[in-house]
Structures are given as structure tokens and as C-alpha cells.
Amino acid sequence: MGLPLDAVLAQAMLGLTQGAFYAVLSLGLAVIFGLLNIINFAHGALYMLGAFLALIGLNQLGGWIGAPDFQINFWAALVLAPLLVGLFGILIERTMLSRLYKFDHLYGLLLTFGVALVLQGFFTNYYNVNGTPYPGTPASLRGIVNLGFMYFPKYRLFALAASLVVCFITWYVIERTKLGAYLRAGTEKPELVQAFGINVPLMITLTYGFGVALAGLAGVLAAPIYSVGPLMGANVIITVFAVVVIGGMGSILGSILTGLALGMVEGITKVVYPPAANTVIFFVMVIILLVRPAGLFGREV
């Protein structure tokens, strides 16, 4: 191609940022799949919900409660929105999903598909489908920094770092702590873990809440970069599915690394053959699944 090194590095950097979002989203999916064995189709919609909570907190909440000057700023939203999304997830799990565990796992996928439709339709009624810019980027994160090979927005750098930290902590907790050990054991032999006096249903509920909270967090992080719109979840969910499948269903490390890698692959495609940027992941997916049916990091069933 004869591309200058700087240009390649710049594109890699952009791809990595995109990949970090994929990683956080697919990590949430993988955690949920690992323990509940369901594919959470509502993940994209909950990502959108997180972004909307941040936007509403900043623009509208004050007006609703009669104090027009009251605002939830970005930092507060970064904590509150995932919590709320997590609670919403817990509600879904307790009232609906938990009734389906005794049936085929596909019903979980179908139920969450319905949830996604409801959320998406609801927000489409009230908000601009084109997306509304999120104006609350903190002053300290505005502007650009010189990385040597390119000028990069400070905020994107922050989002990249924050995503990587979240991924690392989640991986560490699940793979390296006692809590994580219970979780993993619960996946393998729920009856046995229950016998040890651990409340497995509660653990499942909390895991689902945590998984979707990650989606909410990604939503808040994405809000200042992309516009906040009702379709942002639907556009990303299929790609994130692909990431999880390529990484190996339920594999924590797999979903993180695959997310980052596929972000880069997409970034490179945007230079080499842009029209395929949205499809390249599926080519990769077909090839990987033909060669390694359980995904890159998955165990053979």
C-alpha cells in the first residue's frame, strides 16, 4: 500500500479505541453467557440506555424535577448510569429471565430480543433518530493531544484507558479471586455450589446485573464520541455478537482480546477497502468458526 508509518499508527490507534468499546460490550455478554448460558440480545439496547441516561441526566432531569439548573455531570453519570442499567437488568432477570432457565436457552435470547425492541421503540418515539450530541464532555478532557504520529482527542484517550482498566479488573476478579472462583464453579456445577451454601440464584441475578451494567458503562463512555440515538445499540449488537463468538462463547479473556483485535481489523479495513468495514468481522467469523468451531479461546464442546 505504501502507507506512511504515521498513517498506519494513527489508524491502529483509532481502531484500538473502537475495539475497546467492543471489548467492554462483549465482556458483558461473555460474563452473562458464561453463567446464564443465554445470549443477551438486549445488550445493545442497554448500551443505548446507558448513553441516554447520561444525556437525560445532563439535559432534562433538572427540568423534570423542577430545578432547571440541576445536572448530573459526566463523572456522576459514569457511576450512576451503569448502576441504574444494572438495576434495570436485575429487574429483567428477576421478573422474566429467571422463569425461562428450565426451558431451552434460545428462549432467553428471544426474550431479550423482545426487551431490545421495546427499549428501542420507546426511545425512538421521544428522541431524534439521528442522535443527539452529548454536550457534557468534562472540560479537562476536551481538546487534542499530540501523540507524535497524530493529534488525538483527549477524550478518546480517556475512553480507551477507562475501557482497558474496566476489562482488566473484570478479568482479574473472575479469573483470579475467590469470588470469581465461585462464579466459575457455579457455571460448571450449580448444584454442587448450592450445596456449599452459596445462593446460586442470587449469584446469577447479580451476574446479569453486572454484565448489563458494563453495557451501560460503555454507553456513557460512548456518548461524547458518537451521538446518542435510539439505534446506536441495534447497530452495534450484531458486531458484538460476532466478537463474542469469535473469541469463544463465555471466555472472558477471549472476548477482551478479540474485541480489541477486531477493532483494529475494522480500522485497517477502513483504509484498505472502506465499503467492507461493517462486514469484515463476519468474514473473520465464518473463517474462524470453520477452523475452530468453539472460537479462538473457547473450549471444544
Partner: peptide
Amino acid sequence: GSWVTVIIGLTFI
């Protein structure tokens, strides 16, 4: 409008 999506989603659930 998009209330249809909501109604269909609910039907599905």
C-alpha cells in the same frame, strides 16, 4: 410510528 416496535416487542415478551 415506532410504538409499533414497542407493541411487537411486548407481544414477543
